[in-house]
Design a protein around this nucleic acid. Sequence first.
RNA 1: ACCGAUGCU
Length: 266
Amino acid sequence: PSDFNVLIKGYGWAGMVDAAMDMLKQIRNFGFSPTVMHFNCLLGVLLKENCLDTAQTVYNQMLTEGCPPSVITYTTLIHGFCAARKVDLACRLFKEMGGNDLSPDVYTYSALIHGLCKAGRVEKASFYFEDMKSNGCLPNVVTYNALIYGFCKTANLDCAFEIFSEMSATSCEPDARSYTLLIDGLCKLDRSQEAFKLLNDMQQKGFVPGIVTYNCLMNGLCKEGNLFEAYNLLDGMMNKGCIPNVYTYSPLIGALCKSGKVHKVY
RNA sequence: ACCGAUGCU
């Protein structure tokens, strides 16, 4: 029974949407009826593969089969629609679930807040952030990080840092990702000096910077044309066992070209 | 037990 979820996810991982769809028939062939978990699992796969129409069909099927959507169903749909750049549709679903006596939880809010932030609509995201708190739903590190992402994306670092302080003050400690988000935000505004201060802070707190953190810093240094420090950073990260990837090299190559040192690229 | 949310192109 729950093994079907593993299979659906496996097909989803392989991008085999049709095979995942067939699992619904398989479940019935085995004499079971698909549960809300099976539907949720399948919806997640379909939305990840951008099969919005098929997802709609499956969702309708759920309803007609008397399998009422759960909070997880709505969260899956909201997340999927946000990923498909249909944030308004996601907001509509969010309102709809209230009418169905379902209360959004921290996953639901986080998905919607992140979707709005990704669309650059951080002020509407802030509205839902306040809404969740007044509904007694406590934001967690994922919610906070999503908002920090939104403020950084819109170059509003003051608000991003405000949220960051709020976390520390509310027993929701920032994680490595929170720091990386701020580091990226600073670097994108040519403020890599401050970003390196944050790198120190995060290390003081015992977080080990990962490849993404280093890539953000690399991007910043290269944007500022600081090739010397960029090479220093490259050395430093490799010494710490971090393998550079395309996100590391591409800004470096760009900066080298810009400075006329094209030969160094090779 | 098993389904849902956050970082660099």
